[in-house]
Write a protein that binds this DNA or RNA. Structure first.
Lengths: 205, 205
DNA sequence: GCGTCATGTGAATCTAAAATCACATCGGAG
DNA sequence: CTCCGATGTGATTTTAGATTCACATGACGC
């Protein structure tokens, strides 16, 4: 056995990513220390050198998701300046994010979020609220610039935006990838864009 | 012990309902035959008189959900005849349904749907598609009657409608009931209604 | 070069819950 | 009333996986 010893900081990251990865195809129930260990080249017991237990591994996964979500909005802010354009980009990135991290909706709805560690549940809530707040902020800026109808509730708009993805993710999951989320997201976005834009003309190609 | 013997048809229903109920507060992983048994007044082994195993119990839960969803649309069709009104009622009923059956979104996204029994997964997909098809049908009728813009894709509209609920359900779950889903659904519905209605006037109260 | 501490290992322990089985009892058919 | 199949029970077996522990070994400071 070519034993390779790595620093615990590196291992923690490897393990969190491996776990998130495995959760994409397996499911929290079946996420085993053994499986995670295999993925990073460790024996089950090896994980315990870096995490106190499965619970802590899950915490790390949640943090990883939080980081990636935050990065999404941050990148979009740099890529574009028009509010409508930004919202569209958030949507596109979010779709990609969900596709690349299939586990995310499942974790959010998971058993763990009901009966598991309440601290983790609160943390997830906090992460999502933070994400929504970021999107709401974009909406608010759009309202100030006149691109978005001022009378709308930014929170409702931001939830509607992310709400486009969730039902798509359901069908995508259940159909084992058959359902075309991107396509659906584009169509739903057209509908949403019209209804939030200040100029009221409706385009039908 | 006052042993009460009941017909297997009754027991199957009791058990499915008990399981769906327990899933609301526990989580699939922790749904134990023991727990279900206790709920209906049976010892763990007793369940096996009526179901081959946990897997079959879950199948029964899925069927129960399917029945209730189908009933929703059916009732709405009787209550109202205007398409917009019908859509609104579907939404309201759906919100109530999700609140009374907290387990539903979790089951749809559950581990079981990823790695579990593929037949059950297919069945859930079928149930949801059926539900969406019913809603799409209402949309199509609204388009024929002129109440809903004809150029819209009915499927997108029906997904948007149900998509209002899902993000709300996320926050509702994570906030342990703090988040007001009904209120959010109403606001989001106002936005959606405007964007699908044929008359283009926008009301801001 | 060498000591020591972090990191890694394999075996063993512990636990929860599903599933099975032999036996008990209810309730309707006759 | 009495028998029999359907239903219920408690004890037991099995399994999967988390966790623990005593021991091994690599890497880094000196």
């Amino acid at each position: 056995m070519a034993i390779e010893k790595l620093d615990t900081a590196i291992r923690r990251e490897q393990i969190a990513e491996a776990a998130l990865d495995l959760l994409g195809t397996r499911g929290i129930k079946e996420l085993s220390m053994a499986g995670v260990g295999r993925q990073v080249g460790l024996v089950p017991a090896g994980i315990y050198r870096h995490f106190a237990g499965k619970d802590e591994v899950l915490d790390a996964v949640v943090e990883l998701i939080g980081q990636r979500l935050a990065a999404n909005v941050h990148l979009v802010r740099e890529e574009a300046h028009d509010a409508i354009d930004r919202l569209h980009r958030v949507l596109v990135r979010h779709v990609r994010f969900i596709q690349e991290n299939r586990a995310v909706p499942r974790i959010i709805f998971s058993d763990e979020m009901v009966s598991g560690n309440p601290k983790r549940k609160a943390r997830v809530y906090q992460i999502i609220r933070g994400y929504l707040a970021q999107v709401s902020q974009i909406v608010r800026e759009g309202q100030r610039s006149g691109a978005i109808r001022a009378e709308l509730n930014p929170k409702v708009v931001s939830m509607a935006l992310l709400g486009i993805v969730l039902p798509g993710a359901v069908l995508w999951n259940l159909s084992s990838g058959q359902f075309d989320v991107s396509d659906h997201a584009e169509q739903a976005w057209n509908l949403l864009r019209e209804s939030i834009s200040s100029d009221t003309k409706r385009n039908s190609p």
